[in-house]
Amino acid sequence: MDETLVYLDPSPRGEWALALAALLPAARRERVCLLATAEDVAAHPDLVARARAALGPAGELRESVLPGPAERAVAGEARQRRFGLIVVPPAGRNALQRMLRGSRVATVVKSVHAPVLVARRPPARLERVLAAVSGRASTDAVAAAAEELASAALVRYVHVASEVALPHVSPANGPRDEGLARLRERLAAAGREQDLVLRDGLVVDEVLEEFEAGAYQLLVVGAQGEPGAGPDWLREDVTERLLLRCPASTLIVPTAQEGAPVS
């Protein structure tokens, strides 16, 4: 299995990344790279040692120190090696700071081709996971990542239909959702039909409402857009909005064409 990268942040939010990394399945902790920026290591010489202690028993641990800022260090490390998972905490920037400097986690998600786990207020045990599926090409990758990461937890799926209800158009004539059909079949085969929730409305709001109503601890979503879905400057980044508004940890899964599927 590919290495897991954990970014070490000296702020209290850094603890979130380490706590969440400690909750990962054993296979994901077999080979871990602890990454810190040179500036943080200089300011906090015990940063890596504290991280090793917090992470608890893990397999092979590797350290890496690169010049900051954090997003550049993570992207630089991810360019050099292939990672199966990257764990980062949010920088804690407010809306104005994000307007001026951008969002750290959003920048990381856009610049790496690996699943990114954004750690936010991790629970003591990971018991409830919600995977938001578009119903299209990314659905398989999102479902696989959710099931793999939350092996011992309850995984539920939510699909939001945000098409405008129209006269003369029956649902059968609407866009085809092959990914959703496959997921439905898989869940039916496992006797888990009730684990797929269908909602109607604005995607971001409905997903977050379902997340809060079900007291989930981790949200799994696909990276922005589907393959061939037009230029970025025209497209609304739904994933980024979910990532920034979700009150708990979020796993962003690249589509199969973007990066390697989560094994």
Binding site: E163, A229, W233, R235, E236
Partner: peptide, 11 residues
């Protein structure tokens, strides 16, 4: 508009 499936356009 664009040769693609379902899109969320920027406002």
């Amino acid at each position: 508009l664009l040769a693609t499936g379902s899109i969320f356009y920027r406002p």
